[in-house]
């Protein structure tokens, strides 16, 4: 890399530096040295392990003994594994339901974007779920849903009904976990949209108002187009967050009952840690990676294009 570093300045005189070799080359040596530690660690801990996982997915391996080559065997097993299909279906449910987060976040941002007394404190309190550990959120909601003494049960009793045992019902469990996960995610989107609302172009708003735009028309044609950057980011973090879901499932159900709330990330962990099937687990991780790579590529292409435009 060092030889391609193009020094950004011409030759400069500096009497304090002894060697002329150093003086000639320091313009690229220093930046190379500054990049080196981070870059080496990044290769060692992120890039190489990713490639290793691809490789492991082609083997049968218990994590300790010898590895035996099975080619695409793990993937062939995957597509007929009912648990894999359940996990994949749950990932889709997560993804679709998580799209509530940008909408809900925008609604809350619109609600609190006012200059009234105490609004700063209100905003902070709305943000709070965002800083809680997913483990905390998981414990709080598990208990909220508890069919005998949870808040849920209490609300149902008030209407003379019996609360469903959400976390032990295979049909409801994923929805219950997603609802818990939406809590911090909505807060996240709210923060992003509030930043967007603070950067609206006042002249455009004024012009819209003079032109008689109000209510929904104003929002749709004047405000929303200006929130494009915030929406883009909110959508990205939401999609990535949905596909990455692991913590809440591990805390609230451990994939249960009978694997009905598992997702790819959790199934992978389970296969590796509890079943010692590293090859199979790596294959699940690779599938998850492939799904996310689609979104990452889409995101990257947009960001890199914007970056190039700014450079010019």
């Amino acid at each position: 890399m060092s030889d391609v570093l193009r020094a950004s300045s011409g030759r400069t005189r500096d009497r304090r530096l002894p060697s002329s070799w150093w003086r000639r080359h320091r313009e690229w040596i220093t930046p190379a040295l500054l990049l080196a530690p981070g870059l080496i660690l990044f290769l060692l801990i992120i890039v190489i392990p990713t490639l290793q996982s691809f490789r492991i997915s082609l083997y049968d391996w218990d994590g300790m003994g010898p590895m035996s080559w099975v080619g695409l065997g793990n993937y062939r097993e995957l597509i007929v594994d009912p648990q894999f299909l359940t996990s994949l279906r749950n990932n889709v449910i997560w993804l679709v339901l998580f799209l509530i987060a940008p909408v809900g976040g925008l609604a809350l941002a619109l609600l609190v974007n006012q200059k009234i007394r105490g609004i700063r404190l209100a905003k902070s309190l709305f943000f709070m779920p965002l800083v809680l550990a997913p483990v905390t959120v998981g414990v709080v909601y598990s208990w909220f849903y508890d069919p005998t003494f949870g808040m849920m049960a209490l609300i149902f009793q008030a209407f003379g009904a019996t609360a469903p045992a959400i976390l032990s019902d295979p049909e409801l469990v994923t929805f219950g976990i997603v609802a818990a996960a939406l809590w911090p995610q909505v807060a996240f989107c709210m923060v992003l949209f509030l930043a967007g609302l603070n950067n609206l172009d006042e002249d455009v708003l004024g012009a819209g108002r003079v032109d008689g735009a109000r209510g929904f028309l104003m929002f749709w044609h004047v405000v929303l187009p200006q929130l494009r950057a915030a929406s883009f980011i909110a959508l990205t973090v939401t999609v990535i967050g949905a596909l990455r879901s692991f913590d809440l499932i591990a805390i609230m159900t451990q994939g249960g009952p009978y694997g009905s709330s598992s997702v790819l990330a959790y199934q992978m962990y389970e296969q590796a840690i509890f079943s010692y099937r590293m090859g199979y687990a790596a294959a699940i991780a690779t599938v998850l990676f492939a799904v996310m790579a689609v979104f990452i590529t889409w995101y990257l292409s947009r960001v890199v294009r914007a970056e190039r435009r700014r450079d010019r």
Partner: peptide, 23 residues
Amino acid sequence: LFALLIGGNFIPHQILMIPVRDF
């Protein structure tokens, strides 16, 4: 490098799990 850093930031943790644990 810029793209690699963003990509690395978004990948699923599970793709790193087995090799990092092994390491």
